[in-house]
Design a protein around this nucleic acid. Structure first.
Length: 311
DNA sequence: TGCCAGGGAGTGT
DNA sequence: ACACTCCATGGC
C-alpha cells in the first residue's frame, strides 16, 4: 500500500503517510485536463509548501491538497472516498512495488527517481475517450481550453462547476452546436464517438475486462480514433496499465534508450512506465538534466529514425 | 504518396 | 515583433 491510514477529520478525509503521490505530477502531466491548481500556496510557509487543486470527476467536485505525505480530500466523506477517489487516484495499486521493478533498468530508474509521485488516474472511459480525441494534434493548454468550453456549454451543473457532458448529450448535438467549443476538425470525431457510445455500438463497459486487442479494435471503430487515442482511452479511462500510448515524446525515448524494443518484463505495467518516461523526457534538459544528449539532440536524432512499434 | 484540415502554444530569430 | 514548428487522424 502507498499510504498508512485514512481518517475522517471534520468535513475532510485525510490520507496519512502517502508515498508515490505527488499532486503536481499526477494532475499536471498530460493525462487529465480538468484540474486547476490554486494560484497560491495555502496555509503558512512554515507548513512546507502545501498546495491545492480543484476538479470535477464522476460528477463530483473535489478540492484536494497535499503537504508532503499528508493528502487532504476536502469536504468529502469516507464513503465517497472509498467509492470514488480511492479508485480515481489508483490508491489500491502498489506503486512502490512497481517502481522497484522498473528501477532494475537504468533509464527507468532515473525516470522513477525524477518523478516518483506519478499515478495513473482511473478516469471515466467516456471522458477519457472524448478528451483524448480532442487532444489530437494539439498541446495541453489548448486541450484544457477545449475541454473546459465543452463542459461549460454542455455539461450538467453540479455544485461548484459543470460535469463532463454525457455521451448521450453530445450525441444529441450537431456540428454547428459544437462550434463555440472551437474544436476544429475534431468536432465531427467527438460526435461520432458520442453516437457510437450512446447507441451501444461501442460498449465502453466491456473495455475493462475484454482482451486488449478486442478493446483496441472496438474503440477504433469510431471515426477519428486511431491507435494513439485508443491506447490513451484504455490506459487513462479503463486502468489498462498494459496499454502504452506512443506520442512524439515517447517515440524519442524509445529510439534513444530502447532501440531494440521496450523490455518484455515490464509489459504488464508498460503504461505506468510510459508515464514516468514521459515526465522525465519532457522535463529533462531544463533543470536536473540527465547526462548525455540534450532534448534537441534527441529530437534531431529520432527524427531520422523509423518510429518504434508500441508494445 | 504526402499534404491538408483549424488553431493556438511554444520556440527560435 | 515575427516566422516557424508541432500535433493524430482521415480524406483526398
Amino acid at each position: 500500500m502507498d499510504y498508512i491510514k485514512v481518517y475522517q477529520i471534520g468535513p475532510d478525509v485525510a490520507l496519512y503517510g502517502a508515498r508515490c503521490f505527488d499532486l503536481d505530477e499526477i494532475l499536471d502531466c498530460g493525462q487529465c485536463f480538468r484540474w486547476e491548481k490554486e494560484n497560491k500556496e495555502i496555509g503558512y510557509p512554515a507548513n512546507g509548501g502545501e498546495y491545492a487543486y480543484s476538479g470535477i470527476a464522476f460528477g463530483r467536485l473535489l478540492r484536494i491538497s497535499q503537504n508532503g505525505g499528508t493528502v487532504i480530500f476536502h469536504n468529502t466523506t469516507l464513503a465517497d472516498f472509498e467509492k470514488i477517489w480511492m479508485d480515481y487516484f489508483d490508491l489500491r495499486r502498489d506503486y512502490s512495488a512497481i517502481k522497484e521493478l522498473l528501477s532494475k533498468e537504468e533509464t527507468l530508474e532515473k525516470a522513477v527517481g525524477y518523478a516518483g509521485g506519478i499515478r495513473v488516474l482511473r478516469q471515466e472511459p467516456w471522458e477519457a475517450l472524448c478528451t483524448f480525441i480532442l487532444s489530437q494534434n494539439n498541446n495541453i493548454p489548448r486541450i484544457k481550453g477545449l475541454v473546459s468550453r465543452l463542459c461549460q456549454f454542455f455539461g450538467d451543473e453540479t455544485e461548484g462547476g459543470r460535469a463532463f457532458p454525457s455521451a448521450g448529450r453530445i450525441a444529441s448535438l450537431s456540428e454547428e452546436d459544437l462550434a463555440p467549443v472551437r474544436a476544429g476538425f475534431r468536432a465531427k470525431y467527438i460526435l461520432d464517438a458520442a453516437r457510437n457510445v450512446s447507441s451501444g455500438r461501442v460498449d465502453l463497459n466491456l473495455l475493462y475486462e475484454a482482451p486488449v486487442e478486442y478493446a483496441r479494435e472496438s474503440l477504433q471503430k469510431i471515426h477519428g480514433v486511431g491507435p494513439k487515442v485508443a491506447e490513451c482511452t484504455l490506459l487513462y479511462g479503463c486502468a489498462r496499465v498494459e496499454c502504452f500510448p506512443v506520442d512524439v515524446w515517447i517515440r524519442r525515448v524509445l529510439s534513444e534508450f530502447y532501440p531494440d524494443g521496450f523490455p518484455e518484463e515490464f509489459a504488464p505495467v508498460a503504461g505506468i512506465a510510459q508515464q514516468y518516461l514521459f515526465h522525465y523526457i519532457r522535463n529533462a534538459g531544463r533543470k536536473d538534466a540527465p547526462q548525455g544528449k540534450s532534448r534537441s539532440a534527441v529530437e534531431r536524432e529520432s527524427a531520422r529514425r523509423e518510429p518504434v512499434a508500441a508494445g
